[in-house]
Design a binder for these strands. Structure first.
Lengths: 208, 208
DNA sequence: TGTACATCAGTGAACGCGCGTTCACTGATGTAC
DNA sequence: TGTACATCAGTGAACGCGCGTTCACTGATGTAC
């Protein structure tokens, strides 16, 4: 399908090295924070020389970006899966539990994600891609909520399904902060589930 | 009141230098992020030599901590002021507007605060002081809500005033993340005010 | 399937810079009289 | 209030290290026959 000789020349060894570096970088970033990690540390953790790093990435920033993208895509898929599990009618508590499970699974990921937020907050171009990720996530949630309309009532205060999706993401971010500080994963999960359920199933009963 | 000769020897020039360094550090941290700032940069921004830095702080971490503490106390006071402004009965929308105003006043502060969060997330001792700050803030909110009980109804889903205070802080943190990315201060304020009002004035009308 | 060859991927030594840290010195500040 | 003195606060040069970055080299990988 692709050009035979010079084009797809890369592969195998290279792909493996790249994956090794990304994996090691994730661990190191989670442990020390992006700002306090040197290229040398990542290489050492991955078991490669610094030359290998430069052969695969042009800067720590680039690696960090690639790392974030990879993991964020993974999470997005898992969330989509958790949302899709029900039939047409949305079982809010069950869906909330499943989503909560995925979102607060791995504290290391929250650490790296927050590092990335801090990074994006100072670089509009990076912020844009992060905002797009979030928009996709919100869209998936809003779409799911809209599909369940008629079966389940949304509280009027949040406006439409899109407003509700916004609120869900805000709740997630808020609980993330608390979890990063108190390290109480179970508490955070319970609290997030409670918040989300409250946001999405409130008693006042207006539909949209 | 204090020991006359050797004890309070410091003062004047020293206090001024320290304040200058803290002020300059705030600007530099906000602009580049804690992880990407050198002692030298802070000194240059403040107009001092590096020796002056070491005369006042033993590390960048220490300065960062002092800086955070100072500003966080300031904000806490302002929030307390915004909460105290009403009479005994709480005018929720008005109080929400005032608090929102204070909390989302300064994007630079949000940047530094988030840097500090990332820092605290990896150091339990730092996390503890940040958690205490948050607990004080929540306590002030909860106390205010409790005081207004009977005048204003809280939605039952959040539990007691303490639960409501938790939710308020989570909403704040969530909106902060969005603001850091999209830089839409007015939008963030409106959205936070909306969320808080929704959280605190919901129609179901149970008292606690 | 095996062999020769070309290119690629990673090595590791070398270079140099930025910056953390120290320290002898000097001008500033406060105190005693 | 002025002067002498002691101590303190900040200076800036010097040192050295960690690490980013480069590059000539070598072993690995894939291709052609």
């Amino acid at each position: 399908m692709a050009a035979p000789s010079t084009a797809g020349r890369v592969t195998r060894r290279r792909a493996r090295t790249r994956a090794d570096l990304l994996r090691a970088a994730f661990t190191v970033f989670a442990a020390k924070g992006f700002g306090h990690v040197s290229i040398e540390e990542v290489c050492e953790a991955a078991g490669y020389s610094r030359g290998a790093f430069y052969s695969n990435f042009s800067s720590l920033d680039e690696l960090f970006f690639a790392l974030y993208r990879e993991r964020a895509d993974l999470i997005a898929e898992q969330v989509a899966g958790a949302l899709a599990a029900d039939g047409p009618g949305l079982d809010v508590p069950a869906a909330v539990d499943r989503v909560t499970e995925v979102l607060l699974l791995d504290r290391d990921w929250l650490l790296v994600k927050t590092d990335f937020l801090v990074h994006a907050a100072r670089d509009p171009a990076v912020a844009r891609t992060l905002l797009e990720h979030r928009a996709r996530l919100r869209a998936a949630i809003a779409e799911r909520l809209a599909r369940a309309r008629g079966h389940t009532a949304l509280p009027a205060v949040l406006g439409d399904a899109d407003g509700a999706a916004h609120a869900v993401v805000a709740a997630y971010d808020g609980v993330t902060v608390q979890l990063l500080l108190d390290r109480d994963v179970d508490g955070a999960r319970a609290w997030l589930a409670h918040l989300l359920t409250a946001l999405l199933t409130d008693g006042s009963g207006t539909t949209a």
